[in-house]
Design a protein around this nucleic acid. Sequence first.
DNA 1: AGTATGTTTCAACAACTGTTGAATAAGCGT
DNA 2: ACGCTTATTCAACAGTTGTTGAAACATACT
Lengths: 215, 215
Amino acid sequence: MAEAEIRISRKDAILDAAEANFAEHGYDGVTLRMIAKDAGVDVALANYHFGRKHELFEQTFQRRAEILNKWRLDALEACLKQAEEGPVSVRDIIDAYLRPLMTGPHLKEPGWRNYYGMVAYVNSSTAWGGQLMSRSFDPAIDRFIEALQDALPEASDDAIYWGYHCLSGALTLAFAQTGRLDHLSKGKVCSTDLEGGYLQMVDFITAGFERIGQR
Amino acid sequence: MAEAEIRISRKDAILDAAEANFAEHGYDGVTLRMIAKDAGVDVALANYHFGRKHELFEQTFQRRAEILNKWRLDALEACLKQAEEGPVSVRDIIDAYLRPLMTGPHLKEPGWRNYYGMVAYVNSSTAWGGQLMSRSFDPAIDRFIEALQDALPEASDDAIYWGYHCLSGALTLAFAQTGRLDHLSKGKVCSTDLEGGYLQMVDFITAGFERIGQR
DNA sequence: AGTATGTTTCAACAACTGTTGAATAAGCGT
DNA sequence: ACGCTTATTCAACAGTTGTTGAAACATACT
């Protein structure tokens, strides 16, 4: 029976448990004993594999960040290659930014939903926010900013960066899945429906960027 | 000397200290002893005035929420009254939503900056997010949603609510003031410059809403 | 079989947590 | 000056925190 299941290593079990707990309660709201209990291991094991709590958090955060960056950059590259010479459409850039994260089968996996919760927490935390997000995502984001600047030669730097700010804020708030939209819309809109949100956000954000290019 | 200064009550000193600490470290990252030390009072006094830690957090959060709702609703009312009969412009609605919060002399006060940090934390926290934000702000937000629906009769509910989601995400990320934009733009844009961000965001968000009304 | 190496648990640490009840101080009407 | 109510501090509680060093287990190589 046991050999029929695919058993993950205890090290990965700790990462998974950490992910789920950090997503729901943030860094300080989680104790190493909560994580160890969920992972079915002793408290000391987290220390053995990952060092201090701080490092466990960062490693948990970065594990999926790289996957995510690759998805996005592949999508961006594909749309740049497809345009070949001619100007790239703003919509395609925004789509390359949002689609890989907000659609697809990985949304069914609790691991990814949990990770998204962590991203939401980190992105708007005054303490972690700037540092950790920049370290994990900025190299990839730089490419998107460049592409937007190319597609919108008339737009000022201020407009481009604050436009990206709007995009990033909207995405990470979607990641938090707080259920606020459900309450506000009296059930008409579901904030856990990322695929539905994706369709609306692409239009909305694209319009924003196109407007600032008309200066 | 002492009678020349305007001394705030110890109760208010606790609220101020709580605000600053919760903004920087979130709920679980703050201990009552940190707050008491900053306020210059004994630990037990927080309990005497506010009950449990949980209640202190909520009272700190709600203290300024009402002020903020009033600012916004006054601005909305003014622009609705000014339009009188004719259709209200989308831009004026967005302006009424953003301007009172992102511009003005209160931005110089550390208390308000701290409070904004709390809002950022609460809004994208999976645990607090839905409940507390809805309780504090939704009655006012409902009015803005109505106004947007009136101004954009062709837009679907999905589009309106996800549009508001983008607006809310962008605003609360601005509140977090993480310094990420500074890093990403290599110093060209400053994420603590809310007034500068306001100018860009009004254009960007207005364009988004106007687009979804053209269906 | 024995040994070296990497995992995992056990037991304990000093420090810190939110909360409480009793003790003390302050403010104020009379 | 007295009593009464409200503020504030003090001292302590039982439980929890991250972290560690030593001990026990597992695994693979010789």
